[in-house]
Amino acid sequence: MPDTSRPSQREIAGRLLIYGVLLLFVLYFLLPLLVMVITSIKSMEEIRTGNLISLPRHPTIEPWIKAWSYATIGVTNEGIKGFFWNSIRMVIPAVLISTLIGALNGYVLAKWRFRGSDTFFAMLLLGCFIPFQVILLPMARTLGFLGLAESFWGLVLVHIIYGLAFTTLFFRNYYVAVPDELVKAARIDGAGFFRIFLRIMLPISKPIFMVTIIWQTTQIWNDFLFGVCFSTGATQPITVALNNLVNTSSSVKEYNVDMAGAIIAALPTLFVYFVAGKYFVRGLTAGAVKG
């Protein structure tokens, strides 16, 4: 907008319209979260008598306690805490290993290109886009073959394998922008492959490590498809447990417990988003290859 001396009435109306629409969307995006929080601290009695946005008269954290430690999920009555820890234990090795391998791959594809490396890259890029349904059945057979069917490490392995295409892509695109002269000069000085990586590339890689780690963490934490296909019972991740909690056909539906469970499942990724939102958004748009 131009900085004219005094805003005309039309301009003021325009500003009002813009702010009005923007705030309307704030409502649209925040209301579901608000309703979840309100519902999670109501008793079932208040839920039956009140409505979505009526505030609780007697707020209670009982639904949270129940969701965390003794709600019925599948065949156990131990809440989602075990599944929450499953997800944490799964995310840490899967993210670290896929990120480290991706960094090395990206470094090679950007700075040590060889005959065939571009083909490798193109194949990998295409691999980012395949619908995972197309690998589910062979993967299930292979995990069985390896003795990892429905095991914790089986799921970690699956996440590492199918995360590699993305982590490699992220690092490759970042390292391509590093001037080749830097690497060449280091080579003339006698530095080798790993030395250049450790001394030149790693020190400038903090942003891309942040982007990749955050991307992988949210992807793996939020995954449902692999979790539901390759794990059962006590090894399931939190997303699968939440679905089991919400979609059990028990006689009395406890919406407050469902909502508390959903918020618990969302907290880690929301936390990451709020402390490192900059990197999160960069992963979304800079990658722009992914859905």
């Binding site: 579901p32 946005i53 919406y255 990724t269 929301l270 999160f280």
Partner: peptide
């Protein structure tokens, strides 16, 4: 505010909307 839903799992989003769209107690009642 506009971007935070992207950090959520579709399972969480589904749970939230399942409640909002609940025919007995959700938006209809409101």
């Amino acid at each position: 505010v506009y971007l935070y839903p992207l950090a959520l799992s579709f399972v969480v989003t589904g749970t939230a909307w399942k409640w909002l769209l609940n025919p007995g107690l959700g938006i209809e009642r409101l």
